[in-house]
Design a protein around this nucleic acid. Structure first.
Length: 424
RNA sequence: GGAGAGUUGGCUGAGUGGUCGAAAGCGCUCCCCUGCUAAGGGAGUAUGCGUUAAAAGCGUAUCGAGGGUUCGAAUCCCUCACUCUCCGCCA
């Protein structure tokens, strides 16, 4: 959600900023509703005030044994007026909420213009693109040739976009997760958390997946208000929903490994081969809750933490700053890490690190108490994949493949593989 | 799944229709007093929203959530959520 004050006082600036995303909305409708809201809310509160005063005087009169009938007559007409005004306000507020909950975050000024991913801007590169003395295969061929990757069985069990892994490949996947968590906890100062994989709609509203992106989620059947998490960002960030944090706790850094579930509605036909785009994948997620003045420094730091994983795995990557047209709904600024995939001959997203500023915090009422003012103020929230395990596995398979069809185990993962140096 | 008991401010905990945003205690902040310490005295101490350029002030809402009854609800009624205890089942 955006700052109400800004929407009221400088709606044009909001319109201009959101237009950079290619997002347009009926701002005059919003202004009109807001004008009505103002009048109605004042009216409702005045009526309530009148009722409260009169009711109180009835109580006092009754206590002194006076005749209260004249007083009762005096409030008789109030109820109807108040009910009508309250009902009108409620409807109006619902319409305003609907509009406001679907407004994306304002972009940070450093976000470059651009309509789509082609306009994303490369900030830096790391590592050398490996040269192969043979034609490198993609991860599907590498994995299936070893008999360790099995898409057919995944689709038999569940359907398209599910995969089965066996033996040392399954273990390598687990090793990646353990390795990433250990680095973030032991070297980057994150607290490991274990969280629910099913969350309620309030949590999804808080981080911005609802109400607008319901189609991207898997919803649990039955009478529950539960959804499978699309990312650990949802449960981990919502830990601080409706909390006022002691500033001594900040910055709060938390890391979690969870599976993620995405319906991938709207991406029919894209990345249908292999493990790039699955309904279920594992990820180690980094979340930071910081004072507003530190959030951009924290974004650089958090991005660096994700990069560190790729560096230790010796996987070449580049850092992209997402352009205005490609950035996500809740983010003010986002860096994507794209890892080099020799089998595809291109870079592919493996991590996305975002500063949401107060956008999520406002929806969640996640605050800290500023000792300078003594007042609760909104936190800034950040999240980033550190990194996606499924895609990291793909990257290892493709970058570490050998001519004989085997795959070397990255050195940093060998301790997690009982010392194994090679998959086969 | 069955039976029962609960949910009040940072915490403990009172409050069964009116002057209750809520006693008391603890904690915290400030002040006073006291050679030091311990003790003591006084004042303050929730959050959202609105009004405002902003603040102050004022208004309004909030006693798990949502409805209802009533002039008036923490208090009465209904639905739901959650917590605890016991039984059953279970990784």
């Amino acid at each position: 959600m955006l700052d109400q004050r800004l929407l009221r006082n400088d709606l044009d600036a909001v319109v201009r900023n959101l237009a950079r995303r290619g997002f347009s909305f009926d701002s005059s409708r919003l202004a009109e509703l807001e004008e009505q809201r103002k009048g109605l809310q004042v009216q409702v509160e005045d009526l309530r005030n009148e009722r409260n005063i009169k009711s109180k005087s009835i109580g006092q009169a009754k206590a002194q044994g006076e005749d209260i009938q004249p007083l009762l007559d005096a409030v008789a007409s109030l109820g109807g007026d108040l009910d009508a005004a309250e009902a009108a306000l409620k409807m109006l507020q619902a319409e305003l909420d609907k509009i406001q909950l679907e407004l994306p975050n304002l972009l940070h000024e450093s976000v470059p213009d651009g309509a789509d991913e082609d306009a994303n801007f490369e900030v830096r590169q790391w590592g050398d693109i490996p040269q192969f003395s043979f034609e490198p295969k993609d991860h599907v061929d590498v994995g299936e040739n070893m008999g360790l990757l099995d898409a057919a069985t995944g689709s038999k069990i569940s359907g398209s976009r599910f995969t089965v892994m066996y033996g040392s490949l399954a273990r390598l996947h687990r090793a990646l997760i353990q390795f990433m968590l250990d680095i973030h906890v032991q070297q980057h100062g994150y607290e490991e958390v274990y969280v629910p994989y099913l969350v309620n709609s309030t949590s999804l509203l808080g981080t911005g997946q609802l109400p607008k992106f319901k189609d991207d989620l898997f919803e649990a059947a039955g009478e529950h208000d539960l959804y499978l998490i699309p990312t650990a960002e949802v449960p981990v960030t919502n830990i601080v929903r409706d909390e006022i944090l002691d500033p001594a706790l900040l910055p709060l850094r938390r890391a979690a490994h969870t599976p993620c579930f995405r319906s991938e509605a709207g991406s029919y036909g894209r990345d249908t081969r292999g493990m790039i785009r699955q309904h279920q994948f594992e990820k180690v997620e980094l979340v930071q809750l910081v004072k507003p003045e530190h959030s951009y420094a924290a974004l650089e730091e958090l991005t660096g933490h994700a990069e560190k994983i790729l560096q230790l795995l010796k996987l070449p990557y580049r850092v992209m700053v997402l352009c205005a047209g490609d950035i996500g709904f809740g983010a003010a600024k986002t860096y994507d890490l794209e890892v080099w995939l020799p089998g595809q001959g291109r870079y592919r997203e493996i991590s996305s690190c975002s500063n949401c500023e107060a956008f999520q915090a406002r929806r969640m009422q996640a605050r800290w108490r500023n000792p300078e003012t003594g007042k609760p103020e909104l936190l800034h929230t950040l999240n980033g994949s550190g990194v996606a395990a499924g895609r990291a596995l793909v990257a290892v398979l493709e970058n570490y493949q050998q001519e004989d069809g085997s795959v070397l185990v990255p050195e940093v993962l060998q301790p997690y593989m009982n010392g194994a140096t090679k998959l086969s």
